[in-house]
Nucleic acid binder design. Structure first.
Lengths: 225, 225
DNA sequence: TGTACATCAGTGAACGCGCGTTCACTGATGTAC
DNA sequence: TGTACATCAGTGAACGCGCGTTCACTGATGTAC
């Protein structure tokens, strides 16, 4: 995942010429997020990020001021946009809450399937106390996903669109579990199942999960036994 | 969760008398696991563990030789036993694979509900590269849970006990998600839902999840629409 | 039952190392006249 | 269009600090006679 450090020419001292590529800030953020995803925030040193991006550790302070500020910048510029995209459906008024719910879950899974580092980073940091990311992720999560999902479920239950015998909080928890955990742990189960003939790809997983979710939401018919 | 450092009398130099309590090794392991759960393995310093257990950092090396060895000792003595208990049903020959499957899930959830630090620690470490725990947890997991669960599902499908239209690998992934993720993230959603009138406890969650799982495994009847 | 001494449990202070951070500096670029 | 100089992007070397680890030590315990 992490590319070998770019072997750039050893860069003479002084201000660089305009010819040398100027989006170093982006390169630094790319390197930082790649390493954070692999090792976690605390375990990643500024020197490692700098080496990866082909700059000096001093540059990181020149750009961001401190490691903590850098993590926050990264959250604002690389993580928040994804959450905003995922949660967009939750913010628009819904004719059919059930349809919005399914669309949101599918969109969310597709979003994290396309950016597999997202759930991995988020779940790990949320489980560790004292991280800079933890508080902000929890806040963002509880303000958007949790509230929106819960509201949709309650509306859909009230309208009789889905089964109403489940606690909406527990149901939202189960749905989030199904939509997040498999993607966050993808590298693990891929290696566990690697001997299988047919590999599992993201589309299989998304389709499977949607089948499950539809089944879960479905209203009970008269039981046969 | 972490108790304040025991304010023991400042312990005169030299070998301690027999009167002073002798299970310091256990105290150290307790302190270590509590801190590992809260902060993660790399973020926990030996000094923090020593302070917490009321001993010197040098003692940790006296007992375990190194931090890595200590983590391994901890895994063998505090984590492996729980996994062994949880996975016991998977190792006994089953008359009804479906019944064993449900019993295993229920037992597993009850087990981690009673020891909530377990899933939190395991999920976090498994998601971080380079940890000592990671490799061993993955190995243990793929050797027992994954293999056992997969086998049970395949047997139950072959016997017609559960619906057979789902990929057993994806189904096992979904079941593990439902049984692990909600418990690993318990502190988060508890704080998100803390304004609710009726608090969610572990029994609610277990019962809810088992209802969902039974529904998921249930064979389809003719659809009405 | 005493005594001499090896062993044992654990300490306290220091070690080297890598961390995040600082700061004086370098030389290209932008601007005023 | 040139020139002088302030500004800017970024470096290199060093800073103090806390980390995991080491080691000479202390004094209670176990053992041999």
């Amino acid at each position: 995942m992490v590319k070998p450090a770019q072997s750039r020419k050893p860069r003479r001292p002084g201000r660089p010429t305009q010819a040398s590529n100027g989006d170093m800030r982006e390169q630094v953020l790319d390197a930082a997020i790649a390493l954070f995803v692999e090792r976690g925030v605390i375990a990643t040193t500024l020197r490692a990020i700098a080496t990866q991006a082909g700059v000096t550790p001093a540059l990181l302070h020149y750009y961001f001021g401190s490691k903590d500020s850098m993590v926050e910048a990264l959250l604002d510029q690389r993580i928040a946009p994804f959450i905003a995209i995922s949660t967009a459906p939750l913010r628009m008024p819904a004719k059919s809450p059930r349809a919005v719910l399914l669309a949101f879950l599918e969109g969310h899974m597709r979003n994290i399937a396309a950016h597999p580092w997202l759930p991995r980073l988020m779940v790990r940091e949320v489980l560790s106390e004292g991280g800079v990311l933890r508080e902000r992720i929890i806040k963002q999560f509880s303000g958007t996903i949790a509230k929106g999902l819960l509201g949709l479920i309650e509306q859909a239950q009230a309208l009789g669109e889905i089964r109403a015998d489940l606690d909406p909080r527990l149901l939202s928890l189960s749905l989030v579990s199904l939509a997040v955990f498999p993607f966050a742990t993808a590298p693990i189960w891929r290696s566990v199942f690697k001997s299988s003939a047919k590999q599992i790809d993201a589309e299989n997983l998304i389709a499977h999960t949607l089948v499950l979710v539809r089944g879960i939401l479905e209203k009970k018919r008269a039981k046969s036994n």
